[in-house]
């Protein structure tokens, strides 16, 4: 059993909006081991992105972490002062976003931004230039990119720059929120190959946040499926592929186009829940074909159905 680098315990995040309180993340717990890639899979409104932000204590207002712990090497990130948090962001926990436009300053050259980031984290000015070179090379970018402005780069190149910055301080955990969603399929594959390579080379633990179950099943070690802020199922990738339990996971899997059959994938009836007034009982019950009276009344708890395979569903009690 490898050591855990990150432990999340009973995390709750709510947004206090004018039109009501939105429960974005509800009672999420998991462990991330060293060198593990965990995929957090969910559709829009599943809470997956809010979860990613909460791990860095970066939930934007009117959002608030109302309960829970995020333990990085035994220290609760949520209890740190803003100054202490700033120090670990980037150096111990870093983030890659869907849209690299949001991470890069459009008015400054790549090298200047990259160096500033290194200096903030206490690097020597004389060394920073060579570190920039080293990491741009590690993500497969030519040296001349250093002197470019973000708009001169393609989407894939920008994403490579933000990955280079995310790994430069050799953080223990990299959170990648839909890192390939804005990219074309061929480039998507290149970036995922790069993330795989980095995981192998630096032994980083990675949380891959994605809407794409196929991507998760292809790349991750462990998969966590979220719906309406709750974890529905959590398992080792192989175990999940062979032994899918939760009706929602199955529905997501069946919604993938199977290219050889020429049969249209199945769709799930209904729409995602309104998290200002989530349904009683199991959050998935209004769309679940197996829903019973119990599901309408009682929220299922996580139970272990196989080794390391957890599912929140009354069917398996």
């Amino acid at each position: 059993m490898r050591v855990s680098v990150l432990e999340v315990k009973d995390l709750w995040v709510k947004y206090y909006t004018f039109s009501g309180i939105v429960s974005a993340v509800s009672g999420v717990s998991f462990n991330l081991r060293k060198g593990e890639m965990l995929a957090v899979v969910g559709e829009s409104g599943s809470g997956k992105s809010t979860l990613g932000l909460a791990l860095l204590n970066m939930v934007p207002k009117p959002g608030k972490i109302v309960k829970g712990e995020v333990l990085l090497g035994g220290v609760n990130v949520l209890k740190l002062t803003p100054e202490e948090i700033r120090k670990i962001r980037g150096s111990r926990l870093s983030m890659v976003f869907q849209d690299p436009f949001t991470t890069l300053d459009p008015l400054r050259k790549i090298v200047d931004q990259f160096e500033e980031f290194l200096l903030e984290h206490g690097f020597d000015k004389s060394k920073s230039r060579s570190i920039v070179k080293e990491y741009l090379e590690a993500v497969g970018l030519p040296e001349r990119i250093m002197y470019s402005y973000p708009h001169q780069l393609s989407g894939g190149q920008k994403q490579r720059v933000s990955i280079a910055m995310a790994i430069a301080l050799n953080p223990e955990v990299i959170i990648a929120d839909e890192p390939t969603t804005a990219l074309d399929v061929v480039v998507q594959k290149q970036i995922m190959d790069l993330i795989d390579y980095i995981k192998g080379k630096y032994g980083s633990s990675i949380i891959l946040i994605t809407h794409d179950l196929a991507l998760a099943l292809e790349r991750a070690d462990t998969v966590m499926v979220m719906y309406g802020g709750y974890i529905m199922e959590y398992a080792d990738k192989k175990e999940l592929l062979n032994n899918m339990k939760h009706p929602y996971t199955k529905a997501l899997f069946e919604a993938l186009p199977r290219i050889t059959t020429r049969i249209l994938p199945k769709s799930l009836p209904g729409y995602p829940p309104d998290l200002r007034s989530p349904p009683q009982g199991c959050i998935f019950h209004p769309r679940c074909e197996y829903a019973t009276e119990e599901c309408r009344l009682k929220r299922p708890v996580m139970i272990e159905v196989g080794k390391g395979h957890f599912v929140a569903c009354h069917l398996y009690r």
């Binding site: 559709e43 829009s44 997501l252 919604a255 199945k266 769709s267 799930l268």
Partner: peptide, 13 residues
């Protein structure tokens, strides 16, 4: 989202 996508395709077909 994936779970909605197919129903829209079916509608078009």
């Amino acid at each position: 989202d994936a779970s909605i996508r197919t129903s829209i395709i079916k509608l078009l077909l």
